[in-house]
Design a binder for these strands. Structure first.
Lengths: 335, 335
DNA sequence: GGTCCGCATGACAGCGGTTACATTCGCTCG
DNA sequence: CGAGCGAATGTAACCGCTGTCATGCGGACC
């Protein structure tokens, strides 16, 4: 019932091979012939059958984004960035959530789920070990890491250490000396970015000879509630920190709330700075180190598509793109 | 190089047809035979080629979610809900963003993009006219509307009018009388849910004989910044409203900010209630009418898959699922 | 003028499954 | 005891494209 390439071929008085070539913009087709075929295809409202095309060509026509979880601001932004980066290519974006090991462990390994159906994979915010255990390197397709860096694997990420340095230097600039930290998981973790941010934080403190008590570091689970509890604990310390660097904006929101509840004015008695550049940071006057998350997705998409195209081409280097972060100083740090 | 069903057939000493039947769990396969085939397939680490399967069976093996935009809390929750609702089915979820007409108009109609590659479509938060103009009804596949109701099309949505009634009744209960409104677009709009919420708002005011000045209604563009501006305008009125119903939580955040800037304490001088049940509503003490967004996605997925399966079955009714909203009273309304 | 070359095109064998239809075989039943 | 039946399995024709190889043809070249 649906039209096939044969119908077009017949209508144009050419062979199916020529139609196929013409429609895909391959070389060695007479411009006139191509124009005619394209016109006829449009008149007939014909469009190629992806499954047939994929079967015949051996390409999956899809790539997958593998992430520990769906939801949250970061995920959405990455996803939107990927989607926009994929526009120029005729490729579908598939999604696979693994769940976090030990928390929401997913019964199916990513490997099994996406095997044979993708030409490449973007792995988002997963430690290398997890990427391995999910079998993503055994898929025989290119892999691009997003938000993480690892030797020998192409990746796109930010300078986590540098971003943390900026954040903490900012606090020092503003005259704060007793600087606390809200991390994600308890440190050290399997997540490289967290460790990098910790390093940045510590480096600045050392550089300025400021206190680095471990008591000043509290995990906040990367969510609002966790941030609130972490800040509660920090505010109960004596002496309490006069400033706090939160590894995410969402935790910082929780921290802001804890401060409000106690009548502590952000930026005066206690300063706080987040990390991410979340949508609402501006709304809530939260200073933050913004990372270009959409851009991360976009670049990852391009990097991956390049590698897919270049499988047979010259041996590509192990590209590793590092994007810059940007500091936004707002009222929560007294600006 | 990759295994085919033939390799499995050979290894099991049966025909490819039997392997196909066994692996798909069809009837009329001897339990022993099936077990043997499944075991061998696993040993061989064989998995079916989706493109071959799709081509041969004529099924696309995918459904699409069509949305005006990617991003924001609502979108992400719906997406996560769909994904989880789709788990039991072996179906890929494709995404197509149309852009808003006149704002971010997308050059490609959804119709062209997803034609021949989906077995069904979930249309999210789009007015019926837009769904039509995108050609989604000409795709010859089932369509399920999400967040909108329309005669003759299956849909899953909430009771927008009822939710608005709850919100405004709550304000009245708390003793507020001069009640303003922050809508999305300027009213009336092409979006049915907004109009429904407006109706609910007006109904309650009428019922209690409260003022319904049009001056009390301001559009807030459904984003934080718009909400802030809208609230600014409302707070400049004399007499100013003593309470405001915002059609989304994100706009309400903006409104909260406007109040903070002017030193107006939420819930005391001026109350505000949002709509959505956004993640951060609790954090910022915002009263709200929560809608089960993930559930919306999940139900839509099931509804759609049912219809896809039932195309040939008995003529399904035009199911239209309406999910309940829930009021959360917090400090922003003086609780 | 004949040979060779390269471009435009055609013919056709797959790609890896699914499924309609045919076949086999052990039983039930008249 | 043979017809008839249903469950289990096999056979083979597609599904709609792509890619390889073959073919035709006009022009450059010697």
């Amino acid at each position: 019932m649906a039209l096939t390439i044969r119908d077009v071929a017949r209508a144009a008085g050419v062979s199916t091979a020529t139609v196929s070539r013409a429609l895909r913009g391959l070389e060695n087709v007479d411009p006139d012939t191509r124009a005619r075929i394209v016109r006829i295809a449009e008149e007939l409202r014909f469009s190629i059958s992806p499954s047939a095309s994929r079967l015949a060509s051996g390409r999956a026509g899809s790539i997958a984004i593998v992430t520990p979880f769906i939801g949250g601001w970061y995920f959405t932004e990455v996803f939107a960035g990927l989607e926009s980066g994929l526009q120029p290519y005729d490729v579908d974006l598939l999604l696979h959530a693994t769940g976090m090991p030990g928390v929401t462990a997913h019964p199916v390994r990513a490997h099994e789920r996406i095997r044979r159906r993708v030409d490449g994979v973007v792995v988002m915010g997963m430690p290398l070990e997890m990427t391995e255990s999910e079998g993503l390197f055994d898929l025989d397709v290119p892999v691009v890491l997003l938000g993480v860096q690892a030797p020998g694997v192409p990746s796109v990420c930010i300078d986590d250490r540098g971003g943390a340095v900026d954040a903490v230097e900012h606090l020092v600039d503003r005259g704060f000396e007793r600087i606390g930290l809200i991390s994600g998981r308890p440190l050290p973790t399997m997540f490289v970015p967290e460790n990098d941010r910790l390093d940045g934080y510590l480096d600045v403190l050392h550089k300025h000879g400021l206190p680095t008590d471990e008591a000043l570091r509290e995990p906040g689970e990367f969510d609002v509630r966790g941030g609130e509890l972490a800040m509660d604990r920090l505010l109960s310390l004596r002496p309490r920190p006069t400033a706090v660097f939160s590894m995410s904006d969402e935790m910082a929101y929780g921290a802001l709330r804890a401060m409000n509840r106690r009548g502590v004015v952000p930026g005066r008695e206690v300063a706080i700075i987040g990390f991410d550049g979340h949508d609402l940071a501006d709304t809530f006057d939260l200073s933050t180190v913004a990372q270009p998350v959409r851009e991360l997705g976009r670049v990852a998409a391009n990097l991956l598509m390049e590698r897919i195209a270049g499988v047979s081409a010259s041996p590509l280097g192990t590209d590793s793109v590092v994007l810059a972060t940007q500091l936004y100083a707002r009222r929560s740090t007294g600006c």
